[in-house]
Each structure stands twice: as C-alpha cells, then as structure tokens.
C-alpha cells in the first residue's frame, strides 16, 4: 500500500459523534435527534466552513461554535432551510437539517469554553486573535504572545481584547518579535489561561 494513514481526522469524527450524543435534545423536540456523523458529511460537502470559518469560529458568516446555547434546534434548522443571502439555499430536507443541527451543536464539545482562532494561521510578524464565546464575552479577556526559550518564557505583554461586529467574538492583534514556535495565551476571569501553539514564519 502506498498510502500514509492518518488517524487524527477519524478521531475527530468519532469525537463529534460522541459529543452529539451528549447534546442530543429531548425526543419530540423539532429537529432534535439528528445524526451528527451525517451532519459532518453534509457540512463537508456544502463547504460551510468556507464562509463560517475554519472550526466554525466565524468568517464571512457568523461563528457557529456554541450555537446550541444561543438558539433552539428549530431556530438553527430554520436558518439552514430558509437562509438569507449570501448564504445559499441548498434545499436541505428536514432530516438533513436535523443532522446538521446535531453536528453544529457539538462543535464546542459541550464545555462552554471559548474557541481561540489565530488569523492568519501561519503568521509572519503579527496576527489577529479572535475568541468566540457561546454567550456574551466577559469584559476582561486578555491575550499575550509567549515564546519559550528553554525553561523560560518570554511574553510580549497582555493586551485586552475588543468587541467586534459579532456579539460573541472579541479580538486583538498580537505581534511576534521573531520567527519560531510561539504560544498565544488567552485569559479571563479567574480561570486558567488557554494556550494555543502557533508557528511564526519570521
């Protein structure tokens, strides 16, 4: 065999399926109980991330991470089946809409944790850090770029994140002073900081 087999993607699908079970809504609720694995296929085929951003953290279309906390399944299905331009109408059936709802409802893993996105993903000297919350973002979200040098860490200083057009997303620019492996560190409230590794092509 000539193929290199990667398992990461498979695990991600498995995780999505498992999470959809966690998020399954009570039987009888409209558009509940869809198949998240089928929803994942529809999402892939329809190119949803092209507009809603990698990991559904927002792009031309709104962020969908945590959508289940903002809208009911029926409301999400309605937006899928009766979209407003520029979102196309792909003519999804009720069953397909339920599958999509099941998939999208599992995007945040049910943790309620915000999702950190770095644009561009492979920065050269600076990047925009976007943090998507399922609800209203707290007012004290901060970000810092950190470089590890052996056991020591060199931080560039904490920067507060600002509101964006999307009520669920706050953002700030960070600068990288040299190329190499960096960590983008986000903190808010009294919780532990979240670290996102990023390679800077300096």
């Amino acid at each position: 065999m000539r193929y290199l087999r990667l398992f990461a993607g498979l695990l991600a699908v498995a995780a999505a399926v498992a999470l959809s079970v966690v998020h399954a809504r009570a039987a009888g609720e409209p558009f509940a109980g869809g198949d998240a694995a089928q929803g994942a296929k529809l999402v892939q085929a329809s190119g949803c991330e092209g507009c809603h951003g990698a990991g559904f953290t927002g792009g031309i279309g709104p962020a969908l991470v945590g959508i289940e906390k903002r809208l009911t399944a029926a409301q999400v299905a309605d937006k899928i089946q009766h979209p407003k331009a520029p979102m196309p109408n792909f003519g999804f059936t009720d069953a397909q809409a339920a599958d999509l709802v099941a998939y999208l409802s599992g995007l945040d893993g049910g943790t309620g944790k915000p999702v950190v996105k770095i644009v561009p993903a492979e920065p050269t000297d600076q990047a925009t850090v976007l943090v998507t919350f399922s609800g209203t973002p707290p007012s004290d979200v901060q970000v810092e770029a950190v470089m590890r040098m052996g056991a020591r860490e060199h931080g560039t200083g904490w920067v507060p994140l600002q509101k964006t057009d999307d009520p669920h997303v706050v953002a700030a620019k960070v600068r990288f002073t040299m190329g190499g492996p960096w960590i983008v560190r986000v903190r808010y409230g009294k919780g532990a900081a979240m670290d996102v590794p990023v390679t800077v092509d300096g």
Partner: peptide, 10 residues
Amino acid sequence: HATPQGSPSA
C-alpha cells in the same frame, strides 16, 4: 438580494 438557490453536492 434574493437567497441564491444552490445545488446539492452530489
């Protein structure tokens, strides 16, 4: 401003 009709990806 109308919602454009798309084709299923199949």
